[in-house]
């Protein structure tokens, strides 16, 4: 069983917490430590952002995180090294890379899939690679036992839900609002209705992200979804911290979110 499937099996109905941080933010030397901190505070799966020069789907908070990481020239290869380092002492917590397609194109799909498997990556979510364009990459990933993770959106029509369900592995990621990461217009009742509709076609666990900013919204989302993804709010915490206080501030918030969704 994959680490992702094993994680959801172990939770057996309890809700998963999936924190997102950008690799290399605030400094590449801190990322592995922060990942361990997330796990200690209750993270069930880690979404690790791969910095990209043109993060079209991200709001200002995650844009700035990418800029901080890129100031240290953090590359996709560097991110894979961080995952490999993390795996030396953690063999259970799934790591999902989240980012944009171009760095993967530049590395080459075959080489990337092999290297990601060797590093211990469990899933890959390319924000700008919908199922229509994903066949080649998904084939390479699956050959290495890595789950291609796909997004669903409030705008996704029924027929596409069915189609995406066919391609999705691991879990699906429902984008809770029309907007970029970090937006603040989350409508929980609407998310609940949409998730119910998704479940008619999707057997995989459903995670919900974008716009979850505090324990209260996390709890509400946990009421309707299988996993709660929190990104911008955590990145904000890192941004406000010093390198010395980043781990502590991050883990305090993650622990709070975790207890909220229990």
């Amino acid at each position: 069983m994959s680490r992702i499937a094993a994680t959801f099996a172990r939770l057996s109905g309890q809700k998963a917490l999936i924190p997102y941080i950008t690799a290399g933010d605030p400094h590449p030397d801190l990322t592995v430590e922060l990942m361990h901190g997330l796990v200690d505070a209750g993270a069930d799966i880690i979404e690790l952002g791969v910095p990209f020069s043109d993060p079209m789907a991200d709001g200002p908070v995650i844009q700035r995180a990418a800029e901080r990481a890129l100031a240290h020239n953090v590359s996709l290869r560097d991110v894979l090294k961080m995952v490999a380092e993390f795996r030396k002492t953690n063999t259970d917590t799934p790591v999902v890379l989240m980012g944009y397609l171009n760095p993967v194109v530049a590395m080459g799909y075959t080489e990337f899939a092999r290297a990601a498997h060797a590093a211990g990556v469990d899933g890959v979510l390319s924000v700008d690679c919908p199922p229509e364009e994903s066949e080649e990459l998904a084939t390479e990933l699956e050959a290495q036992g890595i789950d291609p993770i796909f997004l669903l959106a409030p705008t996704t029509p029924e027929a596409r839900i069915v189609e995406i369900a066919r391609h999705a592995r691991g879990y699906v990621y429902y984008v809770s609002l029309k907007g970029v990461t970090g937006a603040a217009n989350l409508d929980i009742a609407d998310v609940g209705r949409k998730i119910a509709r998704l479940r008619e076609h999707i057997a995989l666990p459903i995670g919900v992200g974008f716009g979850i900013r505090d324990a209260e919204t996390a709890r509400a989302i946990a009421g309707v979804a299988d996993a709660v993804v929190v990104g911008s709010r955590l990145v904000q915490e890192i941004e406000a911290a010093t390198p010395e206080t980043a781990r502590e501030r991050l883990t305090r918030l993650v622990a709070e979110l975790k207890s909220a969704i229990r």
């Binding site: 700008d128 690679c129 919908p130 229509e132 997004l151 959106a153 705008t155 596409r160 995406i164 984008v175």
Partner: peptide, 12 residues
């Protein structure tokens, strides 16, 4: 070419 965008824009 192609359509390499986030899911939210696919329907539009």
């Amino acid at each position: 070419g192609g359509v390499y965008v986030a899911e939210t824009l696919m329907a539009a």
